[in-house]
Each structure stands twice: as structure tokens, then as C-alpha cells.
């Protein structure tokens, strides 16, 4: 009787060869914590497509934007932990937005793998003539109105920290998504802006200059510029990493199989995902996964809690 049910046949096919590797029993819902058309979305859709081609798993990407990934995370935590619902967001979704949040906590999720990280920079147009943060501060003190383009609370707070450190006035300009800040800068709506990585080609072409790095290390794109931590502006960086997560309680088997599959795509330099990541978020893919990733996020959470306390 069972043999006549096509489903079983289909499932048997899906399971593939005999070795007992984990495989999803049905289609994977791949949720994207940001809106359509942005860096996360582009990356996630390329990844979904190549993962499907690589493993034969059926993957259906869907955007669930809002709250810097938190809206998606709040829904993800209620899904069954069978590896059939995954969500791509950034580390701050889990190690910053969870602080004081009633809906989500860091323990609600299984962390699978990182995919890439930002190159967070303070940017100015080359025609401003500024070569360093000091030049900008001098200009501000001699009467230039500083309009600083950002895309969210965390980076806006970062701009405010710079302003407070140097005793200057800053006007904030909020846009949607990382590219909006670059656009505002280029369109002369702003004269300073944050860049998460997209700025690379513009910096290389000499359109924009990097004034400082907001990562813990100097940027690949401008290795000679100091970090904001070196300058004493802030204690931790503002950079972010993309993190793929599932609901809590996923089996280690499922988690590691998915992570390994993603790493296989990221390690193939010819894959669309790897190409995009390398271009947008140099130097290239990040592959911290599983327990190491969980430990790192928890460590971040503790230092972010300290930061929040400090600022308050």
C-alpha cells in the first residue's frame, strides 16, 4: 500500500544515496530579515539558488523586513526546529536587538553560520579635500554644516559618539539600507556617511575617501586609516556580520550539514554568492559556524550590554 503513495517515493529520492547525511524532509523556507533588493536579499537569493542546485533541497526565499532583522527573528523562533525554516539576518539582530527585547532572546535560536562581514567606514567625498577625521572636525569647527548619512539607530549613535568625542554638531540623515547613505553622499545631500562595504569601488575610483575604520581592524579598502577604537572614540566597532540561524533546538546534525553546504558554496570562487560577497564585503566570505559562532555572539552580547549601560 505504502509503495503506491507518490510522496514516499519522492521522499526516498530526496534522501538520495545511502549514507546517512541529514536532509530536510520537505521544502526549506529561507527567510530574509531585510527588504527586497538590498545586500542581504541579493546574497540570500543567490545562496538559496546555489544551495538548491548543490544539494537538491527545495529552498523558497521570502523577505520579512523590519527592525533590523528582529521582525523576522520574532517569527523564526516559533517555527519547528527541523531545519525547514531558516533565517538570514545580521549579528546585531541577535546580539544587540535582543537587549531589553521581550520578544526575542539570544537563546531562542540555533546559530548555523556566518557568511560575510562588513567593512564599516566613515566616508566623505573626495572633493571635500578632507584626508582624515581631523580635517572634517576642523571644517565643522570653522562653520561647515555636517550632515551625516546613516541607515539605523546603531550607526546613528556611532555618528553621535564621534560628534561628542570631538565636540562638534552633527545633523543626521536617515535612509533605507546601506546603499542609501552612499547615494546621499554622492548626491551631495550629506557630506559624511557610513559605508558598510558597498563603498569599495567608489573609494578605488577616487570618488570617496575613507576617513576612519569602524571595524576593530583597519579596512582592507584603506589600510592606512586609523580605527575609531584607536582614536578613542568608541570601545567596540560598529561592523556587522551576516548570520544564518534557525529556531532553537535544531539537531547538531542538521545545523552542521546546512553550514557545510553553505561553506561549499562560499568556498567555490566561481559561485555567484562568493563573487557577490567578495565584491561587496571584502576580503571575502566568513565561515565561523556552530558552537564557535554561538560563543562569539554571546560574547558580543555581554559587551553590548556593557555599552548600553555605559551610554545610559
Amino acid at each position: 500500500m505504502r509503495l503506491f503513495i507518490p510522496v514516499i517515493a519522492a521522499l526516498a529520492l530526496l534522501a538520495g544515496p545511502a549514507h546517512a547525511e541529514w536532509a530536510p524532509k520537505g521544502p526549506i523556507k529561507f527567510w530574509i530579515g531585510f527588504g527586497a533588493g538590498g545586500g542581504t536579499d541579493t546574497q540570500a537569493r543567490a545562496l538559496a539558488e546555489e544551495l538548491e542546485a548543490l544539494k537538491g533541497w527545495r529552498i523558497i526565499p521570502e523577505n520579512k523586513a523590519g527592525g533590523g532583522g528582529a521582525v523576522m527573528a520574532a517569527q523564526l523562533k516559533n517555527e519547528p526546529a527541523d531545519g525547514q525554516t531558516l533565517g538570514l539576518a545580521i549579528n546585531t539582530t541577535f546580539d544587540f536587538a535582543t537587549i531589553g527585547n521581550e520578544n526575542i532572546s539570544i537563546d531562542d535560536f540555533t546559530y548555523i553560520t556566518m557568511t560575510a562581514g562588513s567593512q564599516m567606514a566613515v566616508l566623505a567625498r573626495a572633493d571635500s579635500g578632507w584626508k582624515s577625521l581631523d580635517d572634517m572636525v576642523k571644517a565643522a569647527k570653522s562653520g561647515t554644516k555636517i550632515v551625516w548619512a546613516n541607515w539605523g539607530n546603531q550607526v546613528q549613535a556611532g555618528a553621535e559618539m564621534v560628534a561628542r568625542h570631538y565636540g562638534i554638531e552633527v545633523n543626521h540623515l536617515r535612509g533605507k539600507g546601506g546603499k542609501s547613505a552612499i547615494n546621499a553622499l554622492v548626491a551631495k545631500d550629506a557630506n559624511v556617511g557610513w559605508g558598510g562595504g558597498v563603498q569599495g569601488p567608489l573609494v578605488a575610483a577616487g570618488e570617496l575617501v575613507i576617513l576612519a575604520s569602524a571595524e576593530p581592524k583597519p579596512l582592507v579598502q584603506a589600510p592606512d586609516q586609523p580605527t575609531l577604537i584607536d582614536l578613542g572614540v568608541m570601545e567596540t566597532g560598529l561592523g556587522f556580520q551576516f548570520v544564518l540561524a534557525g529556531p532553537k533546538g535544531m539537531s547538531a546534525d542538521a545545523r552542521d550539514t546546512i553550514a557545510a553546504a553553505i561553506h561549499e558554496v562560499l568556498k567555490n570562487p566561481e559561485s555567484k554568492t562568493a563573487k557577490f560577497v567578495t565584491k561587496q564585503y571584502p576580503p571575502g566570505p566568513l565561515m565561523t559556524a556552530g558552537d564557535a559562532l554561538t560563543a562569539q555572539l554571546k560574547k558580543n552580547l555581554e559587551s553590548n550590554k556593557e555599552l548600553v549601560k555605559l551610554v545610559k
Binding site: 523590519g66 528582529a70 521582525v71 517569527q75 527585547n101 520578544n103 539605523g152
Partner: peptide, 14 residues
């Protein structure tokens, strides 16, 4: 960044 408002706790309306 204080989380969603006026949603009656419905996560889908986030």
C-alpha cells in the same frame, strides 16, 4: 528600535 508598536503582539504585523 524599541520593537514593533500597536501590533497586539502579532509577530506577523512586526
Amino acid at each position: 528600535g524599541n520593537g514593533p508598536r500597536m501590533t497586539f503582539g502579532i509577530a506577523e504585523l512586526g
